[in-house]
Design a binder for these strands. Structure first.
Lengths: 135, 135
DNA sequence: CTAGTTGCAAAGAGTTTGCATGGCG
DNA sequence: CGCCATGCAAACTCTTTGCAACTAG
């Protein structure tokens, strides 16, 4: 069953498309789509996550889930995410070195890594510098 | 202020110590400590997380936070987590190969990875086998 | 005795579901 | 016209907070 073209659906799609690869919560989407009910936002987010248009992350069990646009076709190249625990910035990391790790983990540890969904937590360069200066 | 030795505190500590490095939710702790109220469980989990005895993970924004024992001293070796997206199992991965990646990411991408908090998502061996058999 | 602890009840935040109405195709 | 979509209200889950009774030290 392919979805109807309703104005709510358009509003939500246009909103997440405009976000690029930024991460947003359901609440943020709802804020930007004033004419759309919360329920509808959740239903579309859910649906878009299932068909691969969005990816869902558990950013924090208290503040709610986080979604990221991956492109209408659901492909998107394989890359990891680096999330800075200090400033919250999220960077992308696409690098041959990491592909080697994936092969290693699969071969030696029998685990197929899903790079798309994986987030490496830590400190970004900027924040590392700041903490040097500050302390 | 050092904590009082109450029977509830003992029950919770003994429970998490018996879990080794497995991950548990607040609900699971509460189940195993029938004589302890939910509120108290949360309060201790919170406190133990702050003093480093436990680590808190955002496993999934819907099913709640996940805690892991790290030892009374708060040390615990550096290791990654592998979370299977099919069965939900969470494995540990402590391996020199990964340390090499950390150095690479720090050197080439100016990002200091916090292995403790990082979760690699994907499919575990068991589930990979099952999907081969099933389809 | 005093200060930290406990747990019920209630408040909150995020998310899901029931159901009647509305609108795409 | 049929069926999916919408949205309000209510239900649910996880977590936190208020408050009065309790207890370790």
């Amino acid at each position: 069953m392919r979805p109807y073209n309703t104005k709510q659906r358009e509003a939500i799609l246009s909103c997440i498309r405009s976000l690029g690869d930024a991460h947003v919560t359901a609440a943020q989407i709802a804020e930007r789509c004033l004419d759309v009910g919360r329920t509808t936002v959740y239903r579309h987010l859910d649906r878009l996550t299932k068909d691969g248009t969005l990816r869902r992350y558990a950013a924090d069990s208290v503040s709610g889930a986080c979604y990221q646009y991956t492109g209408e076709d659901g492909c998107g190249e394989s890359h990891y995410h680096l999330k800075c625990e200090s400033c919250g910035k999220l960077e992308h990391l696409a690098c041959e070195e990491l592909s080697a790790v994936e092969r290693h983990v699969l071969g030696k540890h029998a685990f197929l890594v899903n790079a798309q969904k994986t987030v490496l937590y830590g400190q970004c360069g900027d924040c590392l510098n700041q903490s040097f200066e500050g302390e």
